[in-house]
């Protein structure tokens, strides 16, 4: 059961990585970063749901430890929040970029390389 979710996660991550490397439009690069983050989230939730948490292999299990089953989901929520902040800032950067250089092409943003 775990493998199929991890496979989905890897496929999403690879598609996102390919897009982030090969697209010219800066908004497309941002979108592909979102795809990669979503792939990671799928993996996090799948691990929390389908793999045995380490505390269950201890000899004495405290009842309040049961929340640790959801560690992966808590982690995924923080990833979602950071991704939302990233999109808000990224699109503000896109607008600032259009104002100053009038382009959305990532290959033309090379002031530091020249």
């Amino acid at each position: 059961m775990l493998e199929r979710y991890l496979l989905l996660s890897v496929i999403l991550f690879c598609i996102g990585l390919y897009g982030a490397l090969s697209r010219r439009n800066i908004i497309a690069v941002l979108i592909c970063t979102e795809l990669m983050l979503n792939g990671v989230n799928v993996a996090l939730v799948a691990f929390s749901r389908y793999s045995t948490p380490a505390f269950m292999r201890l000899t004495s299990v405290d009842a309040s430890d049961s929340v640790k089953v959801l560690d992966g989901q808590a982690f995924a929520i923080f990833v979602v929040v950071v991704a939302a902040a990233e999109v808000a800032l990224g699109l503000a950067l896109v607008i600032a970029l259009i104002r100053s250089r009038n382009t959305t092409d990532v290959t033309e943003i090379n002031l530091m390389g020249n």
Binding site: L21, S22, R23, R24, N25, I27, V94, I95, I98, N102, T103, T104, D105, V106, T107
Partner: peptide, 13 residues
């Protein structure tokens, strides 16, 4: 917002 921007449909090198 960027609809009127000149954009190339090619991929990067």
């Amino acid at each position: 917002f960027t609809k009127d921007m000149p954009h190339s449909t090619r991929s990067t090198n």
